[in-house]
Design a protein around this nucleic acid. Structure first.
Lengths: 340, 340
DNA sequence: CAGATAATCGCAAACGTTTTCAGCTTAATA
DNA sequence: TATTAAGCTGAAAACGTTTGCGATTATCTG
């Protein structure tokens, strides 16, 4: 199963392999007749250039590394889809790695990718300390961070305006007449979540509402976590103080939905609910979650463009891009009927 | 931003680069003291071996290509997650590509990956004709097909027993007392779907039930497609003839759920429903779809193991692995109360 | 017709490794 | 003491490309 190399086609064509290389890469200094002949022959022989050898000499692999927490997470896979698509359009392939949202594993993965000589790395960081951990390795390979805000990040990133996002949610709920809105989810550890909570808080203040929080100590949002928290809320009848819930995350909102279902509470009749992220779960029948959308496609495109710029001009420094969130209205919110 | 090569550390250590290479790769013929010294030095200098150069000489990239329709499809992303994990454990990284479920694009992608010198390719084929299209390129790179059955596939693949899967569904519905079960979804074009339909049909025959089908001409299952079909079914009141529906796919089932919701039909009170695939949507609150599970994790592991075997022994021929489906009982089915 | 210019093409170095083979020490054996 | 063996190390080839530079031929120009 010997692969056919450039030498083989050169021998057959009766030219040097330099000529073959030039003919196939469309170099202008090759006669048109010989070029056509060489192309013809290489096709017949089934020649495919060895991009490993090519990478070695041109010092570029045309590969991007993409590090996500877990690709089976709907948000991540959505991002990955657009990143792959956009990168491929620009001539780059993608090396996909799961960090498992674990800092050690993430660091190891990052180093592995630079060893693989990828031209650039796009990473959805595992946690708040990712930057600190990755810092010593940065600089060897152009990198852009995505989606998560990190504290004092002196590196390129693209993210959504999380602060504004929750504000949009509160605006909407307020416009429906809600005056007692509970914030449901994480506030600390992650800058992203901090900003979301602050957006909620400031929006409340602006309307003269008193902010209220439900949270606990945990590091990753999940349906299970949301369910546990919500079940506790319903059990203690604490929720009766509020007519609407602003969730920090769609997955948390799903947990709420599950608990509500079990407690016989109806959404939006018994309370309104808005999520954050617009993962594709949320548009499902019976779920129909009103939520804040992160423009995943645009974010992905921005990230790869940013990366390519950085590759073309390494002296460019870093840049930040904060994208606009939008409110997606579905069926989980209703106007407030009776003032409690 | 000059990268440090093996020569650099050799110079500093005062040995030849052959020695450095041997020391770092744990070759037994290097003195322990020099090895430690070299390791120390290479660490201090921040040396990371260039795996491109390495790949060129050892004729192996330690990379697998993974071609999926779209990574944002929940089923695909689940597979991808486990493939990456298992492959990485075996020392392989993953190059991810979306084929967009398009045959042309798939073929182009496949060729691209062999040009990239990947050691093997795992592919979830785009359609029934994938094999025909890919045939000329096969043989250069070990390949295993996944999940989709293809006609006369003289290549390695791992899939689930689709025939048995729908049988399980019918068994279950029958055991609940249902005697009028409708099969909802595609039957032709894809061997996978053909098998599912046949499993249903044979199970019906075994119980003396008369099979009934709802399908139409389409090539990809989707919620939208399922919704359209179901809405038509409900509008014509045709569904009253049946007390249960066996859907060809979870996504189709979701379409049914959506339509049912709009027509005021309740599941499982008005009819029972079982899906196929067990995508993670189906476990969501308010959905809770009873369905047939494909053992995605085991399938992924089997695929990469199969690929590694093939790489280690290219003369091994091809092999087929058909995994066991299982019934996942959730809340979309109920015992039949009144015989219609 | 001599010389110059342009159009093609080949030579060989380079990319950063791994690995074979041979060479050099040093210690052990006869 | 001479010989052998064992243990380390180095020189160099190989992997399959790209590309700067020089060489060759053909075509003009004067």
């Amino acid at each position: 199963m010997k692969r056919v190399t450039i030498k083989d086609v050169a021998r057959v064509a009766g030219v040097s392999y330099a000529t073959v290389s030039r003919a196939l890469s469309g170099s202008p200094e090759i006669g048109e007749e010989t070029r056509q002949r060489i192309i013809q022959i290489s096709k017949e022989m089934g020649y495919t250039p060895n991009s490993i050898a090519r990478s070695l000499v041109i010092q570029s692999t045309k590969i991007f590394g993409l590090i996500v927490g877990r690709i089976n997470n709907p948000f991540m896979s959505e991002i990955a889809y657009y990143v792959e698509k956009h990168a491929r359009d620009q001539g780059y392939n993608l090396m996909l790695c799961n960090s498992g949202s674990d800092l050690d594993h993430e660091e190891e993965t990052y180093r592995l990718l630079v060893g693989r000589q990828v031209d650039g790395i796009i990473i959805i960081p595992a946690g708040a300390d990712s930057y600190e951990r990755l810092k010593p390795h940065l600089g060897a390979t152009p990198t852009v961070f995505m989606s998560e805000n990190l504290k004092d990040l002196r590196e390129s990133y693209v993210t959504v305006d999380n602060y504004k996002g929750t504000m949009l949610g509160v605006d909407y709920l307020y416009s429906l007449g809600h005056r007692n809105i509970l914030y449901f989810g994480r506030r600390l550890g992650s800058l992203t979540h901090q900003l979301r909570a602050e957006g909620y808080e400031d929006a409340c203040k602006r309307y003269g509402l008193t902010p209220a929080f439900v949270d606990s100590h945990y590091t990753h949002s999940s349906i299970k976590k949301g369910y546990a928290l919500a079940a506790e809320l319903f059990r203690t009848r604490e929720h009766l103080k509020y007519t609407a819930i602003m969730a920090s995350t769609d997955t948390m909102a799903l947990g709420i939905i599950k608990a509500a279902d079990e407690f016989g509470l109806r959404i939006p009749q018994d309370f309104s609910l808005v999520g954050f992220d617009n993962i594709n779960f949320s548009s499902l029948p019976k779920i129909n979650l009103t939520t804040i959308d992160q423009p995943k496609k645009a974010m992905a495109a921005a990230a790869v463009d940013m990366l390519i710029h950085k590759i073309n001009d390494p002296t460019i420094g870093y840049s930040h891009r904060i994208m606009e969130p939008t409110l997606i209205v579905r069926d989980s919110c209703a106007p407030l009927q009776n003032n409690p």
